[in-house]
């Protein structure tokens, strides 16, 4: 029999205390677009729903020094509407335009999407190429986990049982441009088959810095370090881009599932990477 409790901490300290006390039986509840599904599907049968939506420590999108801080309980719509992001890091808000649909974007949060740790989480690849940090908080303190090291498997993350995500810190890149391309099976509300984010710094046509991240091609969203290495320092043209993009094969381990075969995922990941890089270089010009 399902048995759930509800608790709404009045302040941040209380949240950390209750998460410590409840440990894995305490489920942070923000938008609920994942958690309520798990409850309805009965993959979670009992526990305490810890309502975190109104705690100010988990809200807000602001720039502090060279870092943009996004509260874990900020919705995707909030990100799309943020003036701070529009001015300082439009790449990230633009990346969220194809996240689910407007109804879900009004509910789903950045912290929830990351914590859920889906291999196709749409916040992950853009955050990975931005070298974002997940700020985890617990009674014993705060630590920063690089986004790239945050995931440990499908649906699994590296938070301790007493930790919650407080915010996401994104260092504002000094230079460069980025793009996020998502491939779904339909145009509205699609779950990514595969997705590619790149951030490129380009000096007189030569790539002097590049970060590449993909979703849907491994148990977790990944950084494509081999491909990054291959592209670094290169002058890109129509002739060499394919061979360089093919190095992605060393980075990815896609599986075949309902949404696509491993072969297809591999092929389109390479094509999306090429498209992403060419588009970025064009906007850099």
């Amino acid at each position: 029999m399902d048995n759930f409790k509800y608790f709404k901490p009045q302040n941040f300290k209380e949240l950390l205390n209750v998460k410590y006390d409840l440990s894995s039986a305490g489920f942070p509840l923000a938008g609920g677009s994942n958690l309520l599904i798990y409850i309805k599907e009965k993959s979670i049968r009992s526990g305490t729903l810890i309502d975190i939506t109104s705690l100010k420590e988990l809200r807000g999108i602001k720039k502090t020094g060279d870092t943009i801080e996004i509260g874990a309980a900020e919705t995707i719509s909030g990100i799309l509407e943020s003036k701070v992001l529009e001015n300082e890091l439009p790449f990230f808000s633009v990346s969220m335009r194809d996240f689910a649909n407007p109804l879900i974007r009004n509910k789903a949060t950045i912290g929830g999407n990351m914590a859920d740790a889906s291999p196709v989480a749409d916040t992950a690849p853009p955050l990975l190429v931005l070298d974002a940090k997940v700020v985890a908080a617990s009674k014993s303190g705060i630590r920063e986990i690089p986004a790239n090291e945050f995931f440990s498997g499908p649906g699994k993350n590296n938070l301790s049982k007493d930790e919650i995500i407080q915010k996401i810190n994104i260092p504002v890149p000094e230079r460069g441009s980025g793009i996020f391309l998502k491939l779904g099976q339909r145009k509205g509300t699609s779950i990514s088959v595969t997705s590619v984010a790149v951030w490129i710094v380009n000096d007189s046509n030569k790539i002097t810095g590049i970060r590449i991240s993909l979703g849907g091609v491994a148990p977790v969203p990944i950084r494509a370090v081999n491909a990054e290495k291959a592209f670094s320092g290169k002058i890109i043209d129509e002739n060499n881009i394919t061979a360089l993009a093919e190095t992605l094969k060393e980075d990815i381990k896609p599986i075949s599932d309902l949404r696509g075969s491993a072969e297809y995922r591999t092929a389109v990941s390479i094509n999306l990477l090429k498209r992403a890089i060419l588009t970025c270089l064009k906007t850099e010009e």
């Binding site: 649909n101 339909r186 145009k187 509205g188 699609s190 779950i191 309902l258």
Partner: peptide, 28 residues
């Protein structure tokens, strides 16, 4: 023609909800 298929693997259904059984949206 483009997207709908109720998939079963040896009689076990795999597309049980409207997140996996896809029908056209206004954008399609």
């Amino acid at each position: 023609g483009l997207m709908e298929d109720y998939i079963e693997e040896k009689g076990i259904p795999l597309t049980l909800n409207l997140a996996t059984y896809l029908i056209p949206t206004s954008k399609d």
